[in-house]
Design a protein around this nucleic acid. Structure first.
Lengths: 228, 228
DNA sequence: GCAAAAGTGTTTAATCTACACCCATGT
DNA sequence: ACATGGGTGTAGATTAAACACTTTTGC
């Protein structure tokens, strides 16, 4: 057993945002130091000695991108020697979800060195970050099928078609509209409001729905299991 | 961002073994130093500076228990400040599976400070290890439903009832024998041998089966998905 | 011959899949 | 009026769930 150790511990976050216009997107920052200077990378950094891993993620996201996320979950720990050319660094990675307003604000400003990229059109990335994003996307794809986390990527009220388009973007495959609506509504945790979509451009406006968290937890306790 | 850091990186392993006699069991070691001296704990220890995480797990298992495992997968990283009373330690945990022969040998010797405990009858454990084992068991329960990893816990040849009893032990719920056999056999990656179970005590001997890895991968590539 | 475990099918209910036309709005 | 997107139901196929008796062996 090694008696002393020289390994650094970092966190990195794959933050997903979504709008039907921009599609499923990932938040990246432009590195301003070597190595990989001027390349894009995941937000992240070293963990403080007295700081929890989740706190470190939130702190780094605020420092580097100014964003606050509504959902955070641990993804995987990457620790191969050599993945950082300087030192041995173990990165404990997380993935997070943000609501469209946070997504759009950041996308607009574009100032500084943070930007959103569509998941299917990523730039060259530093370190092993392509692998991390790939892992995160797969995890999101499987998780969205058995937990209603998709709502963390939508506004409080949303037309049903937004939810469907979100699933199409995340799963990267077509979905049958009628079957999808049947499945989702049958669970009973979506409230239909009496409002309709405004600002819709052309086409018939859709009713707005709201995810009812209380109902969801009640149903979950009662033993339903969400599965798409 | 913290400029220097004083965090240690460790790995811990939840190793599962199974026999129909002993049930689903976990490998533990008795601590001979403080803190938690004389309590049971998961095998594990600090990662070497140039060592991969998986190598560290295998090394610690060999050093502390003498066991070799046939399956290893990362579980989760536990890093709350205070989980180790001495220093800040991040533990990257893994779970592993061993074949019955390795399981039984170790269970017999009982010498030294390593021992197997039935998953439903664990002793008092050091650190946050109860939480880690709980997490590992849940992961095993969900994974065994969509990947054929159960075979890693069985001998090369096994009677069908062994497989069924394994699933009952892992999932901790009853299974319908006929439906289960239908499901498993329909995939087509189990080879039936012409041997029968020997040393069976009372009852009719069962045919022995073998998991055909090649067939499994061929079928997997062709797009089947294993689901119980 | 009896206790213990293995082997084997069918029926019913539930779920999944595929599929097309009308409606409300903006231009 | 036409283009755009929203809303809705059914029939057929597939899959899941429930269920009990016969066979082979050891003692």
């Amino acid at each position: 057993m090694p008696v002393s150790q020289n390994i650094k511990v970092a966190v990195d976050a794959v933050v997903f945002g979504y709008t039907s216009k921009e599609g499923l997107s990932v938040l990246l920052i432009k590195r301003d130091i070597e190595p990989f200077k001027d390349m894009w990378a995941l937000p992240g950094g070293l963990v403080g000695d007295e700081e929890s891993l989740e706190d470190a993620v939130h702190r780094e996201l605020k420092e580097e991108t100014g964003i606050s996320i509504t959902y955070l979950e641990q993804l995987y720990s990457f620790g191969k020697p050599g993945r950082d050319p300087r030192n041995r660094v173990i990165s404990i990675t997380y993935y997070g979800l943000v609501k469209p307003d946070a997504f759009e604000v950041c996308a607009d400003t574009d100032a500084g060195d943070a930007a959103w990229f569509n998941i299917k059109n990523l730039p060259l990335l530093a370190f092993d970050h392509p692998e991390i994003i790939e892992t995160a996307w797969k995890r999101l794809q499987s998780k969205i099928l058995y937990e209603p986390i998709g709502f963390e990527l939508l506004d409080e009220k949303f037309p049903f078609s937004e939810l469907e388009k979100l699933y199409v973007a995340v799963l990267d495959r077509p979905i049958d509209r009628r079957n999808f609506k049947k499945k989702i509504t049958q669970f009973g945790f979506l409230d239909e409001t009496d409002e309709k979509q405004t600002l819709g451009g052309a086409g018939r406006p859709g009713n707005l729905y709201r995810f009812n968290v209380k109902k969801y937890f009640r149903l979950k306790k009662a033993g339903i299991n969400f599965e798409i």
